[in-house]
Amino acid sequence: MIRQGRVYLRAFEEKDMKKIWEWKNNENLARYESSNPFITMSEKEIEKAYINSSGKNCYAICLKSNDELIGEVSFWYPNILNQSTVELGVSIEEEKCKYGYGIEATVALFKIIFNNILINRISFCIGSHNFYSKGPLEKLFNCDGIIKNDRLIDGKYYDTYIYGFLRKDYDRIIHDILKL
């Protein structure tokens, strides 16, 4: 269990499946998913992806105050031949996404990644429509690029913002980060 601010990260359990099913079938949340938007998941698929998958770096985000499950955070290698960069993704349930829990979960994941895995860079991509994430992300990450008209959502084109965070920045500002 990794604690940070008001949240902690833990492994997914079978009791979480009902809530994940609701998230994966929620139209509003799907708009902000960068990987599988508008793809619904059955209970069986969820169980396979979250419980029976041994190699997945995916964590449940829970509130310290009442142990409520509020989201998920995960990381992966976008390029199998380039092991110096990981990409991460954060998803917070609709009612809780305005309170900064996502950034606390991101910092918790930073601790896991930079203290245990020899990578140099963390990337994070969001759509320009994702105004909930943009402000908090820019407190931590540098914007490395904007890919124009990269996404088509509800009939409109949106840009993709690519953010980056380097190990040397983590080493330099670790104390400030952990105060977040």
Binding site: S84, T85, R121, D144, G145, K148
Partner: peptide
């Protein structure tokens, strides 16, 4: 083509990022 961004120190090649 347009240059849209630079991913800092993204690849480790021959001892350098």
């Amino acid at each position: 083509f347009l240059k849209e961004g630079i991913l800092k120190e993204e690849r480790y090649i021959n001892g350098k990022f």
